[in-house]
């Protein structure tokens, strides 16, 4: 397979699969804790962080930019929490507000950066929709360095994370450090977002967090299985996306990955046993038939 022999293609494929697996796995918690929109807001909010990191340091180094992205995403999440706690504004309104402010600010900064005379800013715009083709080996290491600790923490605190995702009030009554685990989970989702920025970009990133979790939930009733399945779906979609875009002539990889993932999700929503729409419809008509025959 060319995907694994050609250096560029291999890097793109492996990088995309890593992203798909990690964001799929960590996205489960965003979905189960009903914070899918928070993931969306945080990924959009990463844009000004990238532009600012570039303006301040003057470097296009991946790590520097991603740190900027992480800080901006966290700042957005904290601001959001502060709005909800201190005002009468509901959380969906606050989300829309924060997303628009950060993303708008990011676009303004980006257009300013574009007009800089230096050539260093080239490619900064690719963070909007991602540019998987530009992934180099160093980026893969960056992904591993960021995701390794995140995954290790999730594994270590798994029982608490599970309980807190299901019933935070009960967890608090037991004396578990609910607030700290929630901060950890938010941080971990930020890590997943930051990893995905280069490949699928700030606009489409939330799809990579949410879609694998939604698809995986259709096929299993166990959290452990769901998390692993979501990682598998994410990686599979990324692999297929990278492959499809390599077949075509210069089709952007990120959007193709997102479309593939959406396709997988749509199929899961339709045909998964028990929870699939077609199954439910079929069962309903069967019950009706039994009812009519009596």
């Amino acid at each position: 397979m060319e995907l694994f022999t050609d250096y560029t293609l291999r890097t793109v494929t492996i990088g995309s699969m890593l992203l798909g697996a990690i964001s799929g796995l960590l996205g489960c918690f965003a979905v189960l804790r009903r914070q899918a929109l928070l993931g969306d807001a945080m990924s959009h909010a990463a844009l000004p962080g990238i532009a600012l990191a570039f303006l301040i340091t003057g470097q296009r180094d991946t790590f520097t930019l991603l740190i900027g992205a992480a800080i901006a995403a966290l700042a957005a999440a904290l601001w959001l929490l502060a709005i909800v706690r201190t005002s009468r504004i509901k959380d969906d309104t606050a989300l829309a507000l924060v997303l628009a402010v950060f993303f708008g600010f990011g676009l303004v900064l980006l257009s300013y950066v574009q007009r800089q005379p230096t050539a260093a800013q080239a490619g900064l715009k690719s963070f909007l929709f991602g540019q998987a083709a530009a992934l180099v080996e160093r980026d893969l290491w960056a992904m591993l360095v960021i995701s390794g600790p995140a995954l290790a923490l999730v594994a270590l605190f798994w029982p608490s994370i599970k309980l807190i995702s299901f019933d935070p009030d009960f967890a608090r009554s037991l004396g578990l450090p609910v607030r700290r685990v929630e901060v950890l989970l938010t941080g971990v989702i930020v890590a997943a977002i930051v990893i995905g920025l280069q490949t699928v970009g700030v606009v489409l990133m939330s799809a990579m967090l949410i879609a694998p979790a939604v698809a995986a939930r259709q096929w299993t009733n166990r959290l452990e299985t769901m998390v692993l399945l979501a990682a598998g779906f994410g990686a599979l979609a990324a692999f297929a996306g990278a492959w499809i875009s390599a077949l075509g002539d210069r089709i952007a990889t990120g959007p193709v990955i997102v479309l593939t993932m959406s396709g997988l999700t749509a199929v899961s929503l339709l045909i998964a046993p028990e929870r699939g729409l077609l199954w439910q419809r079929w069962r309903l008509t069967r019950w009706r038939q039994i009812g009519n025959n009596h």
Binding site: S160, K162, L163, F166, D167, L174, N221
Partner: peptide, 17 residues
């Protein structure tokens, strides 16, 4: 939430664990 009855009841032990 994707979990079983036994898992939920086990959560009652987390305070001791």
């Amino acid at each position: 939430f994707p979990t079983t009855v036994l898992d939920v009841v086990l959560m009652g032990r987390y305070g001791h664990l």
